[in-house]
Amino acid sequence: MIEQISIIGGFGKNGQPEPVKRVDFKMGDVISIVGQTGSGKTTLIDDIELFANENTPSGRKILINGEAPESRFSNNVSNHPIALITQHTNFLSDMQVYKFLLTHASIRGSKDPSAIVEETIDFANQLTGEAIDLNYAMTELSGGQTRALLIADAVIIGNSPIILLDEIENAGIHRTRALDLLKRYEKIFIFVTHDPRIALLSDCRIVMKNGSMNDVITTGVEERKVVEVIKELDDLLLDFRMHIRNGSVLTEKIFEDRLKSVKCLNN
């Protein structure tokens, strides 16, 4: 059973030791990794995914329950406790969605594959705009649908204890709903993100700079208040986006009426 995962700091881009020497996450934690483009965010999650053991360029070490991971994790991908979903992860198989999920569920030894497939599709559909058609080939899904299904598959069928999500805000899935849904499952979620909403809804965030883990900031009471306001502003923009997506015209009246309904702008 995985209870805790730790990152032991290595070296940054210039070869200097990382300011953060060790970070521990326990089951149920939601963590964000933030930083400028090129600051080393993706390298950090790659290190986690590979169970780096001072054998990657960063020299970092990943520990599970305080110890170097067992080799059975890396020998069979089904035992691998980490699912990584990036902006580039795609389905390449043109199997039908339903058939593929059923196959995956059976490989994972599910006693009731069709029930678990239904739960997966249901989860995915809560994250997407348009519902996924079970008869579609996986390659026919849109970018957002693919990302939603990948996440749902990793959480429910894969039941991976640790899930790494690289910039999913760009994939057009419903972020707040994703966070709410994910928090119901006892797992470690690590988001690489540029999105203030995801970062501030996390329990803590690792700040990357020049290839190093520069700081770990725990989301405090003040930030928890601020994120409520950010949510409102973000929802405002999402509403306008939805409006335009649905083919409507954004008139000045609609725009101003909507602005009036935002509490934080009218205090």
Binding site: S78, L84, N90, L92, F100, I107, A154, I157, G158
Partner: peptide, 13 residues
């Protein structure tokens, strides 16, 4: 690195 973990599992099986 080019396919999803789910597909890797099916391929392996």
């Amino acid at each position: 690195d080019l396919i999803s973990q789910a597909e890797r599992e099916v391929f392996r099986a």
